[in-house]
Design a protein around this nucleic acid. Structure first.
Lengths: 216, 216
DNA sequence: CAGATGAATAAACGTATGTTCATTTTGTGA
DNA sequence: TCACAAAATGAACATACGTTTATTCATCTG
């Protein structure tokens, strides 16, 4: 699984000349190597030395581009959460699509290799492991945020109304969807070799079918 | 939330004299301080120096008792997973209780402060963050193991038979329960201040009620 | 093309970290 | 009570780590 860091243009000024192009390339390269290092050596094992070694660049580059290693890691976390957010936003916020299809689309998107891949998930877990010590990390690794949750509740409410499921509870259903997806990610992280995206999706659909039988 | 490390007698020979008592106490004390350090400083921030500082003991003690820092952390992971396992085993393996009550008991047990508390969850996430780099950690932090899963499938099968739910799929239902609980733990880890055990349990019950309406 | 500017390099530095070991303290058994 | 043994101590050590900085290299501008 390849990162699409190169496609992230959010914080990188569009380079206007060759010098800026190479600077920007090196910045992205360092982010990619930091990601690789976390995946390969773990969060504890990630050092400026092995990021530098992976990059093939010189020792000073991390500080030149990011001032400090901590900043490089923060930039990586930001990047990760932005890519994750844009992934679910494409699906959840598209109100042209029916609620049921938005939910199915979310499962697909959330379980797709674009976001659910060994390296990225390793990074999520790396930052999450620090959250009790560094609360400032929270905003970067908690992308299933208020908007995400609100969209899900809205979808579940719509399904309830459409299907006339008198027993349905949109808030609880949304909470279940969020937790279930989180759980699938954990399962992937711990057993990526055996993980079956299809079966994971099947389980998700099974759950929402139980909630909203006529829709799925 | 206090650890019950002192109650763990598995690997600690019952001390027969005062000297062994104090040795055993210090060993446990170091494990507790390592746990505290991970919670307080994060996995990266956990050093022999701050474990030692928290313990009030001398520098050499970690190596005297555990040979290396890595060994101390491994002992902590083992301890954690054993305490977690005994927590669910009490509930899931008690065949005197009805399947439905075993499932409800599991939710209670899995969401109880005995295992779901800030410090212990921080340690789970700490070790999980290293799993892609150190596969040997896997066995310690993946306590929701084959037996756990098999018990759940058995319970779901029994519920299906009892209730005549022709549409029910015990394997998918069990997968959902596992993932849902994992997701709840993640939610707790990221939002322990706002986390409501009652609401988490409610969501769990809501899901299994959807699977097996007549039972819950 | 030459001078100026910014990017990249890698040696050097100070500190932090994990571990060792000679020494001291404490408890045990005769 | 005393010699012995085990446990605990903390100074000392080597290495690893993140960062700084003087220097070199590449590119842009006039």
């Amino acid at each position: 699984m390849r990162l699409s860091l190169a496609e992230n243009r959010t914080r990188i000024v569009t380079p206007s000349n060759a010098r800026e192009v190479s600077k920007s390339k090196n910045r992205i390269h360092l982010l990619e190597c930091a990601a690789q290092a976390i995946h390969k050596f773990g969060y504890r094992g990630t050092t400026t030395a092995n990021i530098q070694q992976l990059s093939g660049l010189s020792r000073g580059m991390i500080n030149l581009h990011f001032q400090s290693k901590e900043n490089l890691l923060l930039a990586l976390a930001e990047d990760l959460s932005e890519r994750y957010a844009s992934n679910w936003q494409k699906v959840l916020l598209d109100t042209e699509v029916s609620p049921a299809d938005r939910l199915l689309g979310l499962f697909r998107a959330d379980l797709s290799p674009e976001v659910l891949n060994e390296r990225d998930v390793a990074i999520w877990f790396a930052f999450r492991s620090e959250v009790s010590a560094k609360p400032e990390y929270k905003k970067h690794i908690d992308s299933r945020d208020a908007t995400f949750r609100a969209s899900l509740i809205e979808i579940c409410s719509a399904l309830k109304d459409e299907g006339g499921y008198s027993q349905a509870n949109p808030v609880l259903a949304a909470n279940c969807v969020i937790a279930l997806l989180e759980g699938m990610w954990t399962d992937f992280h711990l057993h990526s070799a055996d993980f079956d995206r299809g079966k994971a999706e099947e389980a998700c659909v099974y759950m929402v079918r139980s909630f909203f039988p006529d829709h799925f």
